[in-house]
Design a protein around this nucleic acid. Structure first.
Lengths: 344, 344
DNA sequence: TTGAAAGCGCTAACAA
DNA sequence: TTGTTAGCGCTTTCAA
């Protein structure tokens, strides 16, 4: 690969001039020189060494995308429909901005911080962070960060010195709407399916509880259906959840992925959907759109969420202070076939 | 961020010594020094600047993953179930090896080459390349490359100087098996659904043709069902494909994604699956596993394919010459519910 | 308008 | 066993 120095030699000028042309600092270069250099650059197909540039400029043109995963997850996190749709939106925005995406997947915040520092990443996209994790990252990192689907305490936000930004969703309301619909349809024994009752799922749980309460239905722990989504436990706990669900008439699931998995487990166990059990999902991801019976779910625009988060991040990188520290995207209830009206 | 030089100053020793400790070149350093340095490194939480290291060593610790996409694809390529499962396998292997993954998505080989050169990527994973594209990349790049699902001409292989490696599949046989099964089940008017009749799909088409021929069924163009998978055309051409399929009793699809989309379009148009139309997929991806009626399909181990490709690449990076320039992974026919036996 | 020179943080050849 | 020094390719300040 040819270097600037070499080009300068061959053209009989200084590296500075060549560099100036390359970087479009053309105010300081005469038109003829510009033309000569540009012509030559094309001839030799010059490609800059980004490591050298980054070192000199103390930047990286990399956006770090941080996915906290659990060890031994039942499938790789990238294979999840929700995640991959989200990443699609993000990748496209990053590419459009002339940046590069680097994925940091780990269950260990310290490790992620190490990667981010070592690559000198220009901006960070954080997903589903727990309270202190986002703050820990920010405290060390001190460059633009945008969170997605992150609920943190008021006190924690204050420590962010006005630079906490989250792209969220009307999780509570979305789940409230969905569960209310189930209740309108005659259901009372409504399960709640999750694998980790925190963050987003906790909000959805609140919505679920509120809908029950508003309709005078008493909540009971028996309605909690919980997966352990490791390779080892998934099958077992899925099976158990479906069995437990036999005592109910409907289940609200915290994601379409889970809803569809439950649906399939039901088929396996001879539980008919929706005749024996109504199922409601959340996300309206690709998976959910294509299953049968078609899944009723809480729609969100997944790819747009990723796009918006990325755009917001680039705004901050350009030095714009975000107007608000939270953007809450809407949800919409979509009714398809997986829910049956029943008479009490 | 603290630098090696700074550390050396504070410890009253030379940068070389510190660097040697960091890189585990401990043969040349006394135990006491090692201990002192290591203790200090932890104290100050030293993180190397990877740009500087890469510049000095002329490497990058990056594996480039090249996905050639079409402009205005109907969904982002990352959102495809097959792609995301594959990437899952790859990402995990790359991470395990202590490398980093960078995605290069473009419809333009020249652009991809630019990225690869600019980042000085240590190895390249190429997918579904057309004949000359893989060669063009290799010719310029001249570092380890592993292709996945790439069919190229014999002459082209020769130009690779023994360093062409492909991880492939028994595409032709897999499709032959599937279509043969359909024929055994009494089908004769069997459609073939693809969006781009080249590479992998072309092989599958060969298998389809061979199965027809072996059973004395004449092929006709009328059986070709073709999507145009851009945002604009997808819906329209999907609709048309389903309509065309009304004249058939079965359709073999080149991917589960397409199979499931067709299935849904059928529901929309009131075509019952499998009563009116049997559908066979290919890949056995997550999407296909969860739809109803459960999809009959040609199974392949997608994540493993990614893993194997990545492992092979790392072998080459370590300087091992690959034993063979092609590994062909097996397929297996999986019969679920989307196919109906019919009497002729 | 152009060029010389220092420096980004690290590695590596060589000397001590 | 440790240190000196040059250099990776680029940017940037400052002088010409």
């Amino acid at each position: 690969m040819i270097t600037i120095k070499e080009i300068a030699n061959r053209l009989g000028m200084s590296p500075t001039t060549v560099s100036n042309v390359i970087r479009g600092k053309t105010g300081e270069v005469s038109p003829e020189t510009i033309a000569r250099v540009q012509k030559f650059l094309e001839e030799v197909e010059y490609v800059p060494n980004i490591n050298a540039r980054n070192l000199a400029q103390n930047q990286s043109k990399i956006i770090g995308v941080v996915l906290k995963t659990v060890e031994e997850r039942f499938t790789h996190i990238l294979a999840d429909a929700f995640v991959s749709e989200l990443l699609g939106g993000i990748e496209e925005e990053i590419r459009r901005a002339g940046y590069f995406m680097m994925l940091y997947i780990s269950d260990d915040i310290a490790e992620i911080l190490k990667y981010v520092a070592t690559w000198n990443v220009d901006g960070l996209l954080l997903f589903w962070m727990q309270d202190d994790d986002a703050l820990r990252i920010y405290k060390k990192y001190r460059k633009p960060v945008v969170c997605v689907d992150t609920y943190i305490k008021k006190e924690t936000i204050d420590q962010f010195e006005n630079s906490f930004v989250n792209i969220g969703l009307t999780d509570e309301q979305g789940s409230y709407d969905a569960v209310s619909y189930l209740i309108q349809a005659g259901h009372e024994r409504i399960g709640f399916l999750t694998d980790d009752l925190s963050g987003v799922d906790m909000e959805r749980f609140h919505g679920y509880r509120r809908a029950l309460a508003d309709n005078g239905i008493e909540y009971s722990d028996r309605y909690m259906l919980t997966f352990r989504s490791t390779k080892e436990d998934m099958e077992k706990t899925l099976k158990r959840a479906a069995e437990k669900a036999k005592k109910m008439t409907a289940v609200f699931c915290c994601s379409d992925t889970f809803a569809v998995m439950l649906m399939n487990e039901c088929f396996r166990q001879g539980i008919r959907v929706p005749e024996d059990l109504s199922i409601m999902g959340f996300d309206d991801s690709f998976t959910g759109k294509l299953c049968r019976p078609a899944l009723s779910t809480v729609h969100q625009d997944i790819a747009y969420k990723g796009e918006l988060a990325t755009k917001t991040l680039f705004g901050m990188i350009r030095g714009e202070r975000p107007k608000e520290n939270e953007v809450i995207l809407p949800t919409e209830l979509i009714i398809r076939e997986s829910i049956q009206k029943i008479s009490k």
